[in-house]
């Protein structure tokens, strides 16, 4: 009951009762997710200990 009540203004906004299309948002979301994950992986790779820090520091 409550769900139907709270959804009704939303549905009125949407018009047909079902959001059509919107694939550009989906692609944007998936691309952002993959980009942030791979960029972070790259940053972890660049910060990996062992090459310079092992002998030169201190």
């Amino acid at each position: 009951m409550i769900t139907a009540l709270t959804l009704s203004p939303l549905l009125a906004q949407v018009g047909s009762g079902r959001i059509q299309g919107g694939w550009e948002y989906i692609w944007a979301a998936y691309i952002i997710a993959w980009a942030s994950l791979s960029l972070y992986a790259l940053s972890l790779w660049l910060r990996r200990p062992g090459q310079a820090s092992h002998d030169s520091k201190e």
């Binding site: 959804l7 939303l10 549905l11 949407v14 009762g17 079902r18 959001i19 059509q20 299309g21 919107g22 694939w23 948002y25 989906i26 979301a29 998936y30 997710a33």
Partner: peptide, 17 residues
């Protein structure tokens, strides 16, 4: 999805994150 159409597919990356 019944009301959200295809847009709801974002939850597959949003919710796990």
């Amino acid at each position: 999805e019944r009301e959200m159409g295809d847009v709801y597919r974002i939850i597959y990356v949003h919710v796990p994150a």
